[in-house]
Design a binder for these strands. Structure first.
Length: 407
DNA sequence: CGGTTACACGCAACCACATATTTGA
DNA sequence: GTTCAAATATGTGGTTGCGTGTAAC
């Protein structure tokens, strides 16, 4: 039951583009979405193997099929014998990844044909970002998703019975997640808002010592409107934890009370300090297993979460590239990182910390939060003269597109 | 050692206009 | 209290020019 590509009508369609509402083969996907910066932001995902008409949301590891939510619910409902199947969520991608990159993203998919790289799409996977806060989409992700988020997958199985939404909501209720209201006097325990926090709903996963037991929240629920709903406070507070604390907050880490330091993760190993590696490691089971050593439960995720303090719920694909999340997440070693061996070396430590502080402050300042993606899109294409917008019908003496980049 | 110059860098201002928000009927 | 239209405010990005800091002389 293969559907043909909506564009060329010849090749078997493999991916679904929500923005275009089209099923495309990889070749056409690449061609179409390398046309310009806007189309490059379209988020795509695998096509449902069952209905071949909807974007796949999960990959059933048992059946080796990609399924949209409807087919997933129908096929893995409580009444179904397949209810216990383990599935991975399938995330979206944007940009123009090569076939090799796609293979890496969808390591489970064996039939990714080779697609010639487009010369005008050199961003490739680096350009890729996760988008779409749509509840029905499993693509919610921290801004500047990049490869780490695209590749991240989450195991889930043994879905709760009855309520269709539970599979998506995850175990946000019950023992899966402990949501604590953010108290202003609890600066040391920032509330995690990690949109892509691993979500484990399987008891077996807990029994296996899964690292995510303490934390489970569905990405789709973590728009920042929900943040405030959930936590009863503005994320601004979280921002202020750092902005107001100033540089001193970076230097007084060693004064952590003993009991608190017990909860701190041990000096984070290199691969763990970089959240990107942790998350990207989720793309394969082995790495996922390894990651259990890296994320000591909620604590590590808290480290991640703080990076999202500057996000808005309305952020979209393009925004991900601009926001500060990436820099902090991908750079690893957050400011609250417990002092490691290198930071304890007296002389350079303060200088290093000062340098890091300045860099982070600079990043915070310049990392712009895009509140309205539509306005951004419009500004991107609006004609300018010397950087200034000009009236739509107004004549101007040179074409900004030919002299400066317009986006 | 203080003054001058050159350079690099950060940052605010500017523009048009679609859209969000507020206000008044 | 609700609805709707009008008025007002907001946000978006590239370029420019000014202010500031630093190094060289």
């Amino acid at each position: 039951m293969d559907a043909l590509c909506d564009f060329c009508g010849e090749q078997r369609s493999m991916v679904y583009c929500r923005s275009d509402a089209a099923s495309l083969c990889l070749s056409c996907d690449r061609n179409v979405h390398s046309a310009n910066a806007l189309s490059r932001r379209h988020t795509r995902t695998l096509l449902c193997d069952r209905c071949v008409g909807q974007p796949a949301a999960v990959r059933c590891l048992e059946e080796n099929t990609s399924l949209c939510q409807n087919c997933d619910w129908n096929g893995h409902g409580a009444a179904s014998s397949a209810a216990g199947h383990k599935r991975q969520t399938i995330n979206c991608y944007s940009g123009c990844p090569s076939s090799a990159e796609l293979s890496r993203i969808w390591s489970f998919s064996m039939d990714i044909p080779t697609v010639a790289a487009e010369p005008n799409c050199e961003e490739g996977i680096n350009m890729m970002s996760i988008n779409d806060n749509d509840v029905n989409n499993h693509c919610g992700a921290p801004e500047d998703g990049r490869l780490l988020d695209i590749a991240s997958t989450v195991l889930m199985s043994d879905l709760p019975t009855g309520d269709k939404f539970k599979p998506l909501i995850g175990s946000s209720s019950g023992d899966g997640m402990n949501l604590l209201p953010l108290n202003s006097d609890q600066p040391a325990e920032p509330v995690s808002t990690t949109p892509k926090a691993p979500c484990v709903t399987d008891k077996d996963m807990f029994n296996d010592g899964s690292v995510y037991g303490d934390f489970c929240v569905d990405d789709a629920d973590l728009t920042f409107e929900n943040y405030e709903e959930l936590f009863g406070t503005s994320h601004v507070q979280t921002e202020q934890l750092f902005d107001d604390a100033g540089i001193d907050s970076y230097f007084e880490m060693k004064d952590v009370p003993a009991d608190e330091s017990n909860e701190q993760p041990k000096p984070v190993q290199p691969e763990c300090s970089n959240v990107a590696s942790v998350d990207s490691g989720m793309s394969n089971p082995a790495a996922r297993a390894d990651s259990s050593h890296c994320i000591p439960g909620r604590q590590a995720i808290s480290n991640i979460s703080l990076s999202f303090s500057g996000l808005t719920g309305e952020s979209s694909a393009g925004d991900f590239q601009d926001c500060g999340v990436s820099s902090m997440i991908l750079m690893g070693e957050p400011p609250w990182h417990p002092p490691g061996p290198e930071s304890s070396s007296a002389g350079g430590s303060r200088d290093n910390a000062l340098t890091r502080y300045k860099e982070k402050k600079k990043r915070r300042k310049f990392d712009k939060k895009i509140r309205y993606a539509s306005r951004k899109a419009r500004a991107d294409v609006r004609k300018r003269v010397k950087g200034r917008f000009v009236k739509a019908g107004e004549a101007y003496d040179y074409d900004p597109l030919s002299q400066t980049r317009s986006y």
